[in-house]
Write a protein that binds this DNA or RNA. Structure first.
Lengths: 338, 338
DNA sequence: GTGAAAGCGCTAACAT
DNA sequence: ATGTTAGCGCTTTCAC
């Protein structure tokens, strides 16, 4: 049998009300009793029951985390890191995180995540792109929602975003600084804001350096930014334009495909062509050469989202906030001076 | 304000006790009232409060899931799949899963997972190898524990295991069936039961086929089964033994390293050397050629573990059970007839 | 500054 | 077969 507030009260010779007030740091409690009670709590290793608390406070102390299953299960640990970030921050705020994946083709017949129906959460964090329908259904419930790496159509939400434009600039400027003039951009799923922002960053950097923005340097016809698509994009691009000395791929997966294609063509990376990725989700040892990329602070994004929702919940601040997370250039051996 | 049992009782013109009994499928309830009450529950979309239930039943309805952070964060989604499996099965059993990663060097100063200290779970699932100390500390609490893919020193636990010996046989027999005579085994961290079992399966298959078991066909000196170690192991092996026509790596990561080494040596896979992996965690498109391997039913393992713990909890069956999960040969293009 | 007591939503023993 | 009620552990109002 676990220790209850009664046991603590008895041991401390006070009422259970006093114990409760001490735990909530109430100011009307004298210093002495406070110290005494806290000591006993520590000593008896007392932990309040979440069920009892939840019952009276109408709070579960849980936060729901929703993403699509293909996001969660994809090889690169992008969303896994975000999830861990929420978990770590949850510890500080005394929340628990419940994860629920949904189908990426979420439709009318699909149930909302169980924790919504059960009302077993106080708020929701949604990571990555999710179907419009989910958001609509969700809006019938009154839970605060924070989005990560996704801008919902209805902008009236708090979000944690990546500064993709800045990342695109950083990557491109790095190649420019290395002396490259013919710098290509390879993208997939260019309709996705994150990807098009990276292209924007690329273009801004190219313009700032007074280099030409040429259509035969930009290949964005692939519909998904995966490895094989990177391979194909590189083939399309390089069979047309022979002058390219540097390629900025919109993410690491595509960059791997690009490197593969170059190798298959007998070209050396970075001696013949420099290659940059984006996201920093490829472990250093798994590519040769180690991939130069832009780091996205995934874990920190999860943490920020949890902080946000925690504030929303504790301070009843329901107006939306946007947090833009900075990115960072990670120089590795897949790029070099021309 | 959410619907409560009172609202349902009032609407159905019965007492709250009756509603409760209906929900628990008690036999002393007449068919008519049962139907009526269920209808109203459906209609009002009533969901019982977990907090209230938990308070009286002394059950939280949560299951804790523990693994080390390097397991969770590693690139291959092995443990991610297992986790999802527990989540999916949890839905059937009306549990929620709380994830908590721990440091792989968990020591005296580290806290146990928060859900243990908080007593916010009814049972624990542990996946993969965890430090001995964690298990010891955990044993002071009276939670039922189920292990996945790990055999704790104290065998008195329920576990869900992979039939690695069978997998080793399947892989090796596949190569034998293709006509190979000089089949090598590459392993890392050979002290780990999963890995040594795969070697055992290899040896059994080789013996059964009346082929010789030769030390210059077996390379297990690497201390970790990762890609670069596979590369190195292949180098050691092939620089000594030139006759090898097939290599069975103890997992997919090492197999990737092996393929890399062979390519770097100008050998073709599978024309010159056939390569097999184990685990099936490498997405088909990310290797050339697609890797022939042994599939481990990761998601199903998570599901089985959750079923196990659910049974433990609901039927008070506390004697340990072992579940051995079958594996499956996955033929792809990295192997061929000699 | 501290205590008594009501009540959160539910289960289960007991009453009818 | 159904209803009444005590009580699970806690927060919070109100009294002292």
């Amino acid at each position: 049998m676990a220790i209850t507030i009664k046991d603590v009260a008895k041991a401390a010779n006070v009422s259970i009300a006093t114990v409760s007030l001490v735990m909530h740091n109430h100011r009307r409690i004298s210093k002495e009793t406070k110290v005494k009670v806290l000591e006993i709590i520590e000593q008896m290793n007392y932990r309040p029951s979440r069920s009892a608390r939840g019952l009276v406070s109408r709070r579960t102390g849980n936060i729901g985390f929703i993403l699509t299953n293909d996001h969660f299960l994809r090889t690169e640990p992008f969303y896994t890191h975000i999830f861990i970030g929420t978990e770590i921050e949850a510890r500080e705020n005394d929340f628990y995180v419940l994860l629920n994946t949904i189908n990426s083709d979420f439709n009318e017949r699909d149930q909302l995540p169980r924790f919504i129906l059960d009302r077993n959460i106080d708020g929701v964090i949604i990571a990555g792109k999710v179907p419009q329908l989910l958001m609509e259904k969700l809006s019938h419930y009154n839970f605060p929602v924070v989005y990560i790496d996704f801008i919902p159509a209805n902008k009236n939400y708090s979000t944690v975003l990546v500064d993709n434009v800045m990342g695109g600039r950083l990557a491109t400027n790095h190649l420019i600084d290395l002396g490259h003039k013919n710098i290509a951009f390879i993208g997939g799923d260019i309709g996705h804001p994150s990807i098009s922002d990276r292209l924007t960053g690329y273009m801004k950097a190219i313009e700032s350096a007074n280099l030409p923005i040429s259509p035969d340097l930009i290949e964005t016809s692939e519909n998904y930014p995966a490895r094989t698509n990177g391979y194909n994009a590189a083939r399309k691009l390089l069979s047309v334009n022979k002058n390219i000395t540097a390629i900025f791929a919109c993410n690491d997966a595509m960059a791997l495909g690009v490197i593969q294609y170059l190798k298959d063509q007998g070209k050396r990376v970075p001696q013949d062509v420099s290659v940059m990725g984006f996201d920093d989700v490829v472990s250093e040892s798994s590519v040769d050469p180690p991939l130069c990329t832009v780091r996205v602070p995934t874990m920190e994004m999860g943490m920020e989202a949890m902080k946000l929702i925690s504030t929303l919940l504790k301070e009843y601040e329901f107006y939306p906030k946007k947090i833009m997370m900075p990115v960072e250039l990670v120089v590795r051996q897949s790029t070099q001076k021309i």
